[in-house]
Every structure is written in C-alpha cells, then in structure tokens.
C-alpha cells in the first residue's frame, strides 16, 4: 500500500454542534477580552523603563578597585560563546605597561553584537569575574563595524579610587592578593607613577577635580 492510498483522517478533536456553529467567529474572543484592558505599550524611546535587574544587556569588562583590568585574556569567554561573538588576543604585561595583575592581560577584546545572543555563557566562563553584563539594551547602529564593540567600549567606567590602566600593581602584592579582594583602591605609589608617566591622565585626582 502506498501513502496515497491511505484516506486522510484529521487528528484534531471533533467539536460538538455549538462549537461548530460558533467556530467562524471564535477568534474574535481574544479581541473582545482585551478591548477594555489598559494598554501595555511602552513609549520607547520617549519613555525608557528599567529592565529586570538580571536582564542580559551589554557586557562590561570590570576593573579591580585600583583601576587595573580584571581580564587576563584567557579567551575562555570566547571559547564558551555559542555564537562565536567574542574575539580576544592576549599579551604580556610589562613593567612599563601593566594592565592587569599578574603576567597576562587581554590586549584585544571585541564583542560582535550582531552575533551575540545574550545567553550569558561567557559570563559563566570568565574565571576572574572580569566579564559581566549590564542592563544596557540600546545596542543599535547604522554600521556593522559600529556593532563590534572594542575593549575601550566595554571597559567599566572608573569608580572613585581607581586609576586608568596601565600602571604598576600595588607594591608588595601579587595577583592572588587582588583576587582575594585585599586591594581596595589605588595607593600613593601608583598615583605617583601615573603622574610621572602620564601627567595629563584624566583619572589623576588633580586632573579629575580640575
């Protein structure tokens, strides 16, 4: 017997007489039910409502309390990403240019928001808590290049007590001290170093406060 020989039998439940009678207009039920409710429409972009607190928005590359970057360029985020949206290149910290505690830092960091599906797997993969997500959902733009966010677009803003990287680690500490949270803010020696090497750095207290 071929397929064509089998008579067609619907597997939908067969309705009763009343059901069959009202079937052509049943769809209006939804319309009727909602016609008297308050509209849920948001007036974006005139009115911007806060997201849920754990909304998956734009990524952020966090800093240690003295301003050094947390990212060590390990590429685990890039590895975890199911959409292949992240590109990382690492490099060695040097005494002249220390970006993160320890030996290694992320020198190139890109997230392609045309690919990202905001699943957050990268956040779970990050061993240093360098990568987290903000609630910023306004990711749009006229060009493809513009939607590839670079490291400077993703780095967290400076909080009080932070100095822009690169600068040396807090004297006498190791990267382990940073991870344990023993470093709480930039110290005199670090500020002096930045003052000497980048006198116009906007994160210096004097430049900062005018």
């Amino acid at each position: 017997m071929t397929r064509a020989d089998v008579p067609f039998v619907s597997n939908l439940p067969r309705k009763g007489a009343a059901g069959r009678f009202f079937a052509p207009v049943a769809g209006f039920g939804v319309t009727m039910r909602n016609i008297f409710r308050r509209p849920k429409t948001e007036q974006y972009p005139r009115q911007k409502l806060p997201t849920e607190p754990r909304y998956h928005g734009r990524h952020q590359l966090n800093r240690h309390p003295d301003g050094l970057e947390k990212c060590i360029g390990c590429e685990l985020c890039a590895w975890a990403c199911p959409a292949d949206a992240i590109y990382v290149e690492a490099d060695s910290n040097t005494p002249e240019a220390q970006y993160s505690p320890g030996e290694r830092y992320g020198s190139v960091y890109q997230i392609n928001y045309l690919r990202c599906i905001f699943c957050g797997l990268c956040i779970e993969a990050c061993p240093t808590r360098a990568l987290t997500m903000t609630n910023d959902y306004e990711l749009q733009g006229p060009t493809r290049e513009g939607l590839i966010y670079e490291k400077q677009d993703l780095l967290a803003p400076l909080a009080p007590g932070m100095l822009l990287a690169p600068h040396p680690m807090v004297p006498g500490t190791t990267d382990a001290d940073y991870y344990r949270g023993d470093v709480t803010q930039a110290v005199r020696k670090q500020i002096d170093w930045v003052r000497e090497n980048r006198p116009d750095d906007p994160s210096l207290p004097e430049v900062h406060h005018g």
Binding site: G73, E75, W79, E89, A90, D91, S92, E103
Partner: peptide, 9 residues
C-alpha cells in the same frame, strides 16, 4: 609565543 594565543584559535 607566551600568552599570544590559544590552541583553539
């Protein structure tokens, strides 16, 4: 090569 890449890159 130190810190320059990951084998899977």
């Amino acid at each position: 090569y130190r810190f320059r890449a990951r084998p899977f890159d």
